[in-house]
Every structure is written in C-alpha cells, then in structure tokens.
Design a protein around this nucleic acid. Structure first.
Lengths: 342, 342
DNA sequence: TTGTAGGCGTTATCAG
DNA sequence: CTGATAACGCCTACAA
C-alpha cells in the first residue's frame, strides 16, 4: 500500500477513523481516549508507518507548512548564501521551502514565478523593483509577505534588512581616514538597498567636503561583466579614482580582477571595498575590505516575521514594520593609503 | 472572500458546481457544454479571479506540481548555479520547486530535509553518499527520484551527469602535452563524481608512464579553507608539483588564491586547472583552465526524467537509466608549460 | 447539455 | 469514551 491512511489504521485496530484522528492529534495528555485504545492505535500507526497527509490537512484549513522564497537569481553569491540560510531557518521552524526565481526582470506575474496559493507566507529576497507586476500581485495577496534586503523603499509589507547607511558610512570613513579623496562608487541599478548605499556614499563625501567628479558614480549590472564595464569607464576618466567603493562584493571582487588584469597592484595603486562579505571576499588576494552583516540573524528575523505566530493576531498593521540590523566593517588588504604620486 | 471556489462561481452563474468544473477544465473544444453557459461561467470566473486550489486537486490524486530538489549546500557556487537552472526548468514544465538542504552530512532522515509527500518527483544534486539514511529513505519512496552529478556509483535510481573521465582526461592530456610530469590532484572526499575524476587522473598518468609521488593526491573539504590546507601540504612536499588538477572550480580558484598569497606567479611557477567552469573561473586572474559542461541541458534532462510523462508507463525499470553528457575543456591562462629550472 | 452524488484524507461537531 | 457525519475544493461517473 502506498501510504496508510487513518482509515487503514482504524480498520486494523477495530475502531472508528475519527478515534484514530483523536489519538494521533490529541497531544499526549489523556484527553478523552482510553489508554488502552490509545496504545493500540499508536502501535498500529507506528507499525504501518503512518504519516499524515499534508494536503488533506491543508484542505481543512491547516497551514501548508510551505514557505515561499522569491529571489532574482543566484548570480550573486550573496543571495545563494542567503537562500541557504533561509532553507535552514525554514526547516528549523518546520517549514518546507518553495523557491521562485524572478530573473529576467520585466513584469512577470507572480503566478509565473511561484505557485503562491500553497504557501503560508512568502519571503522576498533583494530588490524586485523592476518587476512591478510581481510586487503588485504580492501586495494583494492574503498571505504574509516579508521583504529581505529590499532597502527602505518598499512600501506595503514589513521588511528586514541591514543598515546600509551605517555600513557604507563606515567604509567611507575608513577610506577618507586613509587619505583618499578620489573615491568612486559602482553599484547595480535601481536596487533599494543599493540606493541607500549610494546615498550614504554621497553624503559621506559631502560631509568631508569632497566633491564627486562626474563619472565617479557608475551603475552597471550586478555581474562580473558589469564590473568590467565600470572599471573600463573609470579607468578612462581624466582623473582616475584612488579608491572604488562597490555596492556588492560580487562587483568588488570583479573590480579587483579587472584591476589585476591590467597589472595594477592592489592596494598600492587602487583601493577597493565591497559590501556583503561573501566567502570569496576573505579569500581574494588581497583580502577584500567589506561590510559584513549577520546573515543568519537577519534571515531568522525575516522567517520569524513571516511564519511566526507571535504578532499574527495581536492586531495592528504590521505592514510598515521594519527591522534593521547593524553591519560591521571588515578591513582587509584591499584598502590602504593612496599612493603619493597620483 | 479569500479565494473564490467553483461553488461560488456556480452560485453566481446559476449552474451546478460540476458544470463549472467542466467548463474550466474541459480544454477549449466544445465538449458537451453549451456555448452560452461556457461563456457565462468563464466570464464570472475571470471576474472573480478564480484560481484552482492545488491541494484539493492533489487530494484527488492529481499531481501536486511540486518538484523537490535536495542539495548539500550552496557553498559551492556550481550548485547555486545548478539550482537556478533547476528552478527555471521546473517552472518551464509548470512545476514549483521545493528546496531541501542536506548539509551537516550524517544520517539525516529525509523527512528532516524535505517534506516529500507533497512532491511528485525529486531531484538530488551532487553526491549524498555521506547521508546513507537519507538515500535509504529516498530509495523506498514511491516518487520518482533522479540523481544529478552523483557519479556512477549510486545504485537505485536513474541519474544524469557528465562524463567525468572524459573531462579529466582532457585536462591531463592538456597538461601532459604542455610537458608537466609532476601533477597533483586535489578533490573533496568521497563524492561520486569526484571519484571518477580521480580515477581518470590516475589512469591518465599511468598511461603516460608517469608515477604519482606520495602526497600528490589530497582530499579536503570542498571549501576555500580546504583548498588552503591542500595547498599548504602540497607546498611542503619535497618535490613540489608543477601543476595541480582540482576536482572543482571552487577548489581550483581557492588554490589560485593560495598561490597568489604566497607570491607565486601563475602559470609561470604553477599551473592550475579546475572542473565546472563557474562564472568566477573566467574572471579569475589568470583565467582558469577548466572543464565546462552543458548545465542547462543536463538539468533539463534530469527534470524531464523526473517529471516527464514520457517513459513513465512504458514499463521497464528505469532505475538503472543513466544519461551522460560530454564536457568540454576550456583552456585559459592558468595553465602553461612548466618552468625549466624546477 | 446539465445536475446529483460520491470520494480523496483530515478534522471537528455531534450524538450515543 | 467513542462512533457516525459533515465539511474542505475539486473531479468524475452516472443519472436526468
């Protein structure tokens, strides 16, 4: 037999199916079932290897124990790591993870990306600002949606993220403290988190009384190829920067490669800093100065917010809730004082 | 109302619920439903935004349209990429992807890793040889299970993978052709795919009449730290290798970093080759010589095998089926003729 | 052409 | 303490 049902157990035990349900569901306390019956049913259930059928339960209104996660893609190792953390945390809470990818930008409908009906809650990783249709679908959903690393710009649902300003600010204080004045910024386009990082970059320079030459802020795809483009443009500038701040480690490491490919010495001729502290950041040569965040904690908070029972009926609109974690500057070998002869 | 049911539509249209079912399910041909009724029902369904309830369908025996995927972890960027491909392919076939992670090795039960009952089929990525309990569970499952990149060693279910021998052989012919004789091998432990790669390495050297000094085959964790360990050991050998073949690009790139950190010039003083062609392989400095495989095709084949209707009832045991794709050597800057003065 | 009825595996509400 | 019974949303004979 495929998978035994309660009815099978009931037949074998000579009781009614509803009794089986009571025994198997009724916790452990003596709740209106004879000890003798209870034992017999339990034994048979074990022997037959009974496992409740999730669909039948869900049909009755029980939670499906499915957590949806929508991510743009895994091209950024940071999100691969993040998904892994989500997977672990979901399992810890008894949920299975349903993965949807929102690559190809554009106006994909949510249904194309993820069969939502089955999920109790949904976590959105990264900025999906370029998929308005998807966000719209998400918004009219009755399930709980939590945004992760989506910047502050996303209205409509609670979000968990990192203090982008503080992180970027730490990087810039570090670089300015080293004596840099010609500091460029490279980031992906349009992403919420990145916007905040860029704003912090500009403010930090302002505060230090440093002007930002034209061409010093470059937007590219968050890919290796994007970084190469940006590097080429920056290096063609009349006044080359002495330091580059990248909005992601993927870009930062790729910039490092671009520099190496041109025979530059890092940090001798150019300082580079990133954001995320992906595993490769520490392994790069030289090690990448970057901003680390408590990924596991951030993910745990988001998943908790999504599936947690806590505030679910406390009433009150949680849609505007926003949890922000503090990041930490990690200084490695890719940043140093600028060369004197520039 | 949360989500309209067929009954809601039926009420609104003044017909029976079964009629609604017929209209909505009965394809588009005129199959025993009056055109007039059909239009009316369709209109109301659209207006109410009807979407079928997957659980109810699944309860009746319909496929759940859920594809399970079990992966050890995302620490290897190659598998992150692979999962992305699986996600795309699953969606293409109308399936949602349920992700399970099998990290922490050991004897995890499948139920801990993935709620299987809900899945129509399961794809296992990479070698899970160190999770015997999980494989055992998988084996007694009634759902179709397909192994991906699991080497040839896995008995019990069909598998899709790459010709590891051919790939490794190409690497070794390349290196030997360049004049290398002191070629070391670094790979993760115990993994099926890797075992084949190692065997091919040994055979290729044998064939060329080259002896493998003790210490030239090193097993480490498939991580950045593992590579550093291996490099340190290899570099402490009395006879240092002039080339290192890594079983994965993650290891290869990390070895490259380890070498750089020691001030070695690549490929001047040491050639390094990998396997997988992850995105960073092309971007590394120098670019990594490696083995590329048609990931999208491999994944499509596996997903097709898992959910495809094709041979599902053709009878015949597909458990031993094995699909193998041919990989391709990609020569980049990390390999060259060995230095003369070694 | 359409409506009625039964059942998929559970849970919950009744009676007994 | 336990056994019928009615949903949950959908599909499919079978009947009208």
């Amino acid at each position: 037999m495929a998978s035994p049902t309660m009815q099978d157990i009931a037949d074998a035990a000579g009781v009614a199916q509803s009794t089986v349900s009571r025994v198997l569901n009724g916790g452990s306390g003596p709740i209106g079932v004879a000890e003798e019956t209870r034992r017999r049913v339990r034994a048979i259930a074990d022997e037959l290897g009974y496992r409740p059928h999730p669909f039948a339960r869900a049909l009755r209104g029980a939670p499906s124990m499915l957590l949806g996660a929508v991510v743009r893609s895994f091209s950024d190792p940071f999100f691969a790591e993040a998904i892994h953390a989500v997977s672990i945390e979901a399992k810890r809470q008894g949920y299975s993870l349903v993965l949807g990818h929102a690559a190809h930008g554009s106006a994909h409908e949510l249904s194309v990306v993820l069969e939502v009906r089955q999920c109790d809650a949904i976590v959105v990783l990264g900025d999906l600002g370029d998929a308005p249709q998807l966000l719209e679908d998400l918004r009219r959903l009755q399930v709980r949606v939590v945004a992760l690393w989506h910047g502050a710009s996303l209205e409509g649902f609670p979000s968990v993220g990192v203090d982008n300003r503080a992180g970027t600010d730490a990087v810039l204080r570090h670089l300015i403290g080293l004596g840099h004045e010609r500091i460029a910024f490279v980031g992906p386009e349009l992403l919420g988190d990145v916007r905040e990082r860029q704003a912090a970059y500009e403010e930090a320079l302002n505060r230090a009384g440093i002007a930002v030459p034209s061409g010093y802020v470059d937007h590219v795809a968050n890919t290796i190829a994007g970084a190469e483009q940006a590097f080429a443009r920056l290096w063609a500038l009349p006044q080359r920067p002495t330091a580059i701040v990248a909005a992601t480690d993927l870009l930062a490491i790729s910039l490092l490669h671009s520099a190496h490919r041109r025979g530059l010495s890092i940090p001798g001729q150019l300082s580079i800093a990133g954001f995320d502290d992906i595993p490769f950041a520490a392994a790069a040569v030289p090690g990448l100065t970057t901003v680390r965040m408590p990924v596991a904690e951030i993910v745990a908070a988001a998943v908790g917010l999504a599936v947690g029972s806590e505030a679910s009926e406390v009433g009150g609109d949680r849609r505007s809730e926003r949890v922000v974690f503090e990041p930490q500057l990690v200084v490695r070998g890719s940043t140093a004082a600028p060369a004197l002869n520039v």
